[in-house]
Protein backbone atom coordinates (compact mmCIF):
# COMPACT_ATOMS: atom_id res chain seq x y z
CA UNK A 1 0.00 0.00 0.00
CA UNK A 2 1.05 3.60 -0.43
CA UNK A 3 2.68 5.25 2.52
CA UNK A 4 1.13 8.64 1.84
CA UNK A 5 -0.03 9.81 5.26
CA UNK A 6 -1.81 12.99 4.21
CA UNK A 7 -5.48 12.93 5.04
CA UNK A 8 -8.01 14.10 2.50
CA UNK A 9 -11.65 14.04 3.57
CA UNK A 10 -13.02 15.19 0.23
CA UNK A 11 -13.47 11.71 -1.20
CA UNK A 12 -15.19 10.50 1.97
CA UNK A 13 -17.63 13.42 1.62
CA UNK A 14 -18.14 12.57 -2.04
CA UNK A 15 -19.00 8.99 -1.04
CA UNK A 16 -21.35 10.04 1.77
CA UNK A 17 -23.25 12.34 -0.57
CA UNK A 18 -23.36 10.35 -3.79
CA UNK A 19 -23.06 6.67 -3.03
CA UNK A 20 -26.06 4.61 -2.04
CA UNK A 21 -25.54 3.60 1.66
CA UNK A 22 -22.19 5.45 1.52
CA UNK A 23 -22.73 7.07 4.93
CA UNK A 24 -22.91 3.65 6.58
CA UNK A 25 -19.12 3.33 6.47
CA UNK A 26 -18.93 5.90 9.27
CA UNK A 27 -19.82 3.02 11.59
CA UNK A 28 -16.80 0.89 10.60
CA UNK A 29 -14.39 0.14 13.46
CA UNK A 30 -11.87 -1.73 11.30
CA UNK A 31 -12.21 -5.11 12.98
CA UNK A 32 -11.72 -7.13 9.78
CA UNK A 33 -14.71 -9.42 10.24
CA UNK A 34 -15.94 -8.70 6.69
CA UNK A 35 -12.55 -9.45 5.16
CA UNK A 36 -12.21 -12.72 7.01
CA UNK A 37 -15.77 -13.82 6.17
CA UNK A 38 -15.63 -13.06 2.45
CA UNK A 39 -15.49 -16.11 0.16
CA UNK A 40 -13.95 -14.00 -2.62
CA UNK A 41 -11.31 -12.42 -0.38
CA UNK A 42 -8.47 -14.14 -2.29
CA UNK A 43 -9.57 -12.58 -5.56
CA UNK A 44 -10.18 -9.05 -4.35
CA UNK A 45 -7.64 -6.24 -4.62
CA UNK A 46 -8.76 -5.04 -1.17
CA UNK A 47 -11.32 -6.51 1.22
CA UNK A 48 -14.29 -4.33 2.30
CA UNK A 49 -12.53 -3.19 5.49
CA UNK A 50 -9.63 -1.77 3.50
CA UNK A 51 -11.97 -0.17 0.98
CA UNK A 52 -13.72 1.66 3.86
CA UNK A 53 -10.39 2.70 5.31
CA UNK A 54 -9.18 3.94 1.92
CA UNK A 55 -12.35 6.00 1.47
CA UNK A 56 -11.60 7.77 4.74
CA UNK A 57 -7.99 8.26 3.66
CA UNK A 58 -9.12 9.83 0.38
CA UNK A 59 -7.74 7.19 -2.00
CA UNK A 60 -10.30 7.94 -4.70
CA UNK A 61 -8.63 6.25 -7.67
CA UNK A 62 -7.63 3.16 -5.71
CA UNK A 63 -11.18 2.66 -4.44
CA UNK A 64 -13.06 3.30 -7.66
CA UNK A 65 -10.64 1.17 -9.69
CA UNK A 66 -10.56 -1.72 -7.22
CA UNK A 67 -12.03 -4.93 -8.58
CA UNK A 68 -13.46 -5.61 -5.10
CA UNK A 69 -16.41 -3.26 -5.40
CA UNK A 70 -17.73 -5.16 -8.41
CA UNK A 71 -16.92 -8.60 -7.08
CA UNK A 72 -19.48 -8.85 -4.28
CA UNK A 73 -21.82 -11.79 -4.89
CA UNK A 74 -24.32 -10.72 -2.20
CA UNK A 75 -23.72 -13.83 -0.10
CA UNK A 76 -24.49 -11.71 2.99
CA UNK A 77 -21.95 -13.42 5.30
CA UNK A 78 -20.14 -10.15 6.10
CA UNK A 79 -23.38 -8.22 6.47
CA UNK A 80 -24.84 -10.74 8.91
CA UNK A 81 -21.63 -10.82 10.96
CA UNK A 82 -20.69 -7.12 10.92
CA UNK A 83 -20.55 -6.10 14.61
CA UNK A 84 -21.58 -2.54 13.73
CA UNK A 85 -24.51 -3.52 11.50
CA UNK A 86 -23.07 -2.00 8.32
CA UNK A 87 -24.92 -3.18 5.18
CA UNK A 88 -21.59 -4.03 3.53
CA UNK A 89 -23.25 -5.43 0.42
CA UNK A 90 -25.28 -2.26 -0.19
CA UNK A 91 -22.14 -0.15 0.21
CA UNK A 92 -20.15 -2.32 -2.21
CA UNK A 93 -22.94 -2.27 -4.81
CA UNK A 94 -23.38 1.46 -4.25
CA UNK A 95 -19.67 2.01 -4.93
CA UNK A 96 -19.77 -0.18 -8.03
CA UNK A 97 -22.74 1.77 -9.32
CA UNK A 98 -20.98 5.06 -8.60
CA UNK A 99 -17.77 3.92 -10.32
CA UNK A 100 -19.71 2.93 -13.43
CA UNK A 101 -21.51 6.28 -13.46
CA UNK A 102 -18.05 7.87 -13.50
CA UNK A 103 -17.11 5.74 -16.50
CA UNK A 104 -14.85 3.35 -14.57
CA UNK A 105 -15.37 -0.23 -15.67
CA UNK A 106 -12.82 -2.36 -13.85
CA UNK A 107 -14.79 -5.53 -14.37
CA UNK A 108 -16.69 -4.99 -17.61
CA UNK A 109 -18.14 -8.52 -17.57
CA UNK A 110 -19.78 -7.90 -14.22
CA UNK A 111 -21.27 -4.63 -15.42
CA UNK A 112 -22.58 -6.20 -18.62
CA UNK A 113 -24.07 -9.13 -16.74
CA UNK A 114 -25.71 -6.78 -14.25
CA UNK A 115 -27.16 -4.64 -17.01
CA UNK A 116 -28.55 -7.61 -18.95
CA UNK A 117 -29.95 -9.18 -15.77
CA UNK A 118 -31.69 -5.94 -14.83
CA UNK A 119 -33.10 -5.33 -18.29
CA UNK A 120 -34.55 -8.82 -18.44
CA UNK A 121 -36.19 -8.48 -15.04
CA UNK A 122 -37.59 -5.14 -16.15
CA UNK A 123 -38.92 -6.63 -19.40
CA UNK A 124 -40.46 -9.92 -18.28
CA UNK A 125 -40.27 -9.96 -14.48
CA UNK A 126 -38.19 -13.13 -14.47
CA UNK A 127 -34.86 -14.50 -15.71
CA UNK A 128 -34.67 -16.56 -18.86
CA UNK A 129 -31.38 -18.43 -18.43
CA UNK A 130 -30.71 -18.97 -22.12
CA UNK A 131 -31.63 -15.46 -23.16
CA UNK A 132 -29.55 -13.91 -20.38
CA UNK A 133 -26.53 -16.08 -21.26
CA UNK A 134 -26.90 -15.26 -24.94
CA UNK A 135 -26.98 -11.50 -24.30
CA UNK A 136 -24.09 -11.74 -21.83
CA UNK A 137 -21.91 -13.93 -24.07
CA UNK A 138 -22.50 -11.97 -27.25
CA UNK A 139 -22.10 -8.49 -25.74
CA UNK A 140 -18.57 -8.26 -27.18
CA UNK A 141 -19.42 -9.49 -30.66
CA UNK A 142 -20.17 -12.74 -32.44
CA UNK A 143 -16.76 -14.43 -32.29
CA UNK A 144 -16.22 -14.08 -28.52
CA UNK A 145 -19.89 -14.97 -28.14
CA UNK A 146 -19.47 -18.30 -29.91
CA UNK A 147 -16.30 -19.05 -27.94
CA UNK A 148 -17.95 -18.35 -24.60
CA UNK A 149 -21.09 -20.31 -25.56
CA UNK A 150 -19.02 -23.38 -26.51
CA UNK A 151 -17.18 -23.19 -23.18
CA UNK A 152 -20.47 -23.34 -21.30
CA UNK A 153 -22.25 -25.79 -23.66
CA UNK A 154 -21.93 -28.75 -21.30
CA UNK A 155 -23.41 -26.76 -18.42
CA UNK A 156 -26.29 -25.73 -20.71
CA UNK A 157 -27.10 -29.32 -21.60
CA UNK A 158 -27.06 -30.39 -17.94
CA UNK A 159 -29.38 -27.53 -17.05
CA UNK A 160 -31.75 -28.50 -19.89
CA UNK A 161 -31.81 -32.15 -18.73
CA UNK A 162 -32.58 -31.13 -15.15
CA UNK A 163 -35.30 -28.73 -16.20
CA UNK A 164 -33.39 -25.72 -14.91
CA UNK A 165 -33.54 -24.12 -18.38
CA UNK A 166 -36.45 -24.35 -20.79
CA UNK A 167 -36.27 -24.54 -24.57
CA UNK A 168 -39.29 -22.28 -25.08
CA UNK A 169 -39.03 -18.61 -24.10
CA UNK A 170 -40.12 -17.65 -20.57
CA UNK A 171 -43.42 -15.80 -20.32
CA UNK A 172 -43.93 -12.44 -18.65
CA UNK A 173 -45.12 -12.61 -15.08
CA UNK A 174 -48.63 -11.49 -14.15
CA UNK A 175 -48.71 -7.88 -13.05
CA UNK A 176 -45.52 -6.87 -14.84
CA UNK A 177 -46.78 -3.29 -14.92
CA UNK A 178 -46.94 -3.10 -11.11
CA UNK A 179 -43.43 -4.54 -10.87
CA UNK A 180 -42.15 -1.96 -13.34
CA UNK A 181 -43.67 0.92 -11.43
CA UNK A 182 -41.98 -0.40 -8.28
CA UNK A 183 -38.65 -0.66 -10.08
CA UNK A 184 -39.09 2.84 -11.53
CA UNK A 185 -39.73 4.21 -8.07
CA UNK A 186 -36.68 2.40 -6.69
CA UNK A 187 -34.53 3.86 -9.45
CA UNK A 188 -35.61 7.37 -8.51
CA UNK A 189 -35.01 7.02 -4.76
CA UNK A 190 -31.46 5.65 -4.67
CA UNK A 191 -28.52 8.05 -4.70
CA UNK A 192 -27.13 8.31 -8.20
CA UNK A 193 -30.09 6.22 -9.30
CA UNK A 194 -29.65 6.33 -13.04
CA UNK A 195 -29.91 3.41 -15.38
CA UNK A 196 -26.74 1.38 -15.71
Amino acid sequence: METNTSYDPSFAREVFENVDSGEEIKMCMQCGMCAASCPLREHMDYPPRQIFSMIRAGKRDMVLNANSIMMCTSCYTCQVRCPRGIPVIDVMHGLAHYAISKGILTRKDTAVFGREFWQQIYKTGRIDEKDLSRRYFFADGIITGIKKSLQMARMGIIMLLHGRMKILPEKKIKGIKSLRSMLDKAMQTGKGGSEV
Binding site: M1, Q30, C31, G32, M33, A35, A36, R41, E42, Y46, P47, R49, Q50
Partner: peptide, 10 residues
Protein backbone atom coordinates in the same frame (compact mmCIF):
# COMPACT_ATOMS: atom_id res chain seq x y z
CA UNK B 1 -9.20 -17.63 10.55
CA UNK B 2 -9.32 -13.88 10.31
CA UNK B 3 -7.68 -10.81 8.84
CA UNK B 4 -4.68 -9.14 10.40
CA UNK B 5 -5.96 -5.58 10.11
CA UNK B 6 -2.52 -4.02 10.52
CA UNK B 7 -0.96 -5.83 7.58
CA UNK B 8 -4.07 -6.82 5.61
CA UNK B 9 -2.84 -10.43 5.55
CA UNK B 10 -5.10 -13.38 6.00
Amino acid sequence: EGENTNTGER
